[in-house]
Amino acid sequence: MSGIPPTLQTLADQLAKLPGIGKKSAQRMAIHILKQSTDQANLLAQAILDVKAKLQLCSSCFNISEGERCAICSDTRRDQQMICVVEQATDILPLEKSQAFSGLYHVLGGVLAPLDRQNESDLHIEELVHRIRRDQVREVIIATNPTSEGETTALLVAQRLKPTGVKVTRIARGVPVGSELEFADEATLTRALQGRGEL
């Protein structure tokens, strides 16, 4: 009825399932792909297929990996006794971009959110405990988001790591760089003052 050929509509429908893509954007993208050369379209299709066929979760840290172990875990120049715990594999990217951390990561695979039926058993906490004992880890930095769920998860991880005796730290929370105190809320300022550092 819309005048769009069914094949094009199917492609637009599939693209519209991607996060942040609405129906109109999906139609524009589908038409753009149609206008591209066959080689370009094949490259796109192959890239999508490869993502599914070649990528897996790292057997050690649960990051996205091309092989059994990810590039970060395989890099012997990194500090093997320092682990940064994050919620999702996508959280590793900004941390790596900052170049402020040279240890290893551990991806929990989510947060503790009982209201959304996400419980401890859904997270890779047991594997973290095993890793710490096996690799004699010196310090674990918990870098879950400073949201309600992220904070609860941080508390739980810290509790579960207590018997291992490893040093557990939490990333600082406070006023973002470039922002103004005037606009910071009470909770943020309290946390900023609690986590103040000596100059």
Binding site: P114, S148, L155, D185, A187, T190
Partner: peptide, 20 residues
Amino acid sequence: LVEPYLTIRGDLVRTYTALS
């Protein structure tokens, strides 16, 4: 923000209780 209940958030047992 009126009250962030920061002490609850610093304690797992109280956080679970409040969430329930």
